[in-house]
Nucleic acid binder design. Structure first.
Length: 295
RNA sequence: GGGGCUUUAGCCAAGCGGUAAGGCGUGGGACUGCAACUCCCUGAGCACCGGUUCAAAUCCGGUAGGCCCCU
């Protein structure tokens, strides 16, 4: 049996295309690992695969919740593990594809999440106070004292009785991680052009549909492409500025993805060959075969 | 031809005699519940030449570029 195949890389490098080619060659089924593509209706802005591009390959964890749902890593970990089990029980190869590093890592490694009863936003505590409490509970914590979001999270873990003294770095599955990459300037060009294309192919309408319904859920207010257009609809910026902001957010996002994958996952990198994509596929196959021997 | 204003990092910009704020971008990094999130780190010696002063981006003179007004 083949190991699980994981395909990562910044937005726009060709992960989707590679995943489908590999699925065809390796009897695979694809599991989405993109935190925004789980939402129904966010299609253009998230560059979601459409049914004709799927070429008959089964895709999982796409469109599994409404835009106003509050889907998190906790849910993803559970759902992804379940899909892995299902696919493997049919003797097929799970191919996890996506840009959300945390989701992938939480699914594949021993990350422990517990169902939590209450969430304390800590509005009565300063960062310094939270930091102090966290250090007392876990002296190895490396959360920065300015990172309120993480401090509040860690504090809640403590009051829920699940102190993270252990770093989750033990993989629970056999898997190969293939990272697609391309030089930074090229990536930025691709991103900029892709945003222009999204705009001309209906991103504004897609976002406006939810805006008019008055929906300001997490997905729309944090998803790149949507949050910037909401500012435009709100009359805060011009359309041109909004589009520039989308490009800018996308570039920064791609950079953060690079950093995460480079340091948080055991990635074998391949530079995408845009002239002859079959060479990219062949390289991926070579890596997978080599890994298979090691198992 | 005459007069006034202006010139600080890739961009915006503070500084008004005592040894260059800040923002943006860029690059690097962190990462167990908003992760397309959140957070951290990262640069110049002040257009050029000369002068005054213990000390000049800051004052004076000249040169060059920019902006504006007059003839």
């Amino acid at each position: 049996m083949l190991p699980i195949i994981v395909i990562v890389g910044p937005t726009g490098v060709g992960k989707t295309k590679l995943s489908i080619e590999l699925a065809k060659l390796l009897n695979g089924e694809i599991i989405n690992a993109d935190s925004m593509q789980v939402y129904k209706g966010l299609n253009i802005g998230t560059a979601k695969v459409n049914s004709s591009e799927m070429e008959g390959i089964s895709h999982h964890l796409l469109d599994i919740c409404e835009v106003d749902a509050n889907y998190t890593v906790f849910d993803y970990q559970r759902d992804c593990r379940q899909k892995i089990a299902e696919i493997q029980s049919e003797n097929k190869t799970p191919i996890i594809v996506g840009g959300t590093g945390l989701y992938i890592k939480a699914a594949l490694y021993n990350y422990d999440f517990k169902e939590e009863e209450e969430f304390d936003p800590c509005s009565d505590k300063t960062n310094a106070e939270l930091y102090k409490i966290i250090l007392q509970a876990d002296s190895s914590s490396n959360i920065h004292p300015n990172n309120r979001q993480r401090l509040v999270r860690a504090y809640n873990k403590i009051i829920n009785g699940s102190v993270n003294t252990q770093k989750g770095n033990s993989p629970l599955y056999n898997f190969v991680t293939i990272g697609l990459t391309t030089p930074r300037d090229n990536l930025y060009n691709i991103i900029n052009n892709r945003v222009d294309t999204m705009i001309t192919t209906g991103l504004i309408k897609e976002a406006e549909f939810f805006y008019k319904k008055g929906i300001r859920s997490k997905s729309l207010m944090t998803g790149i492409g949507y949050k910037e257009l909401y500012e435009y609809f709100d009359g805060l910026v011009s359309l041109d500025v909004a589009v520039e902001n989308i490009k800018h957010s996308s570039r920064k996002y791609a950079k953060r993805q690079d950093t995460f994958f480079k340091h948080q996952l055991p990635v074998s990198w391949i530079e995408t060959n845009y002239q002859d994509f079959s060479k990219t596929v062949a390289e991926a196959i070579t890596i997978i075969k080599k890994e298979k021997e090691n198992f």
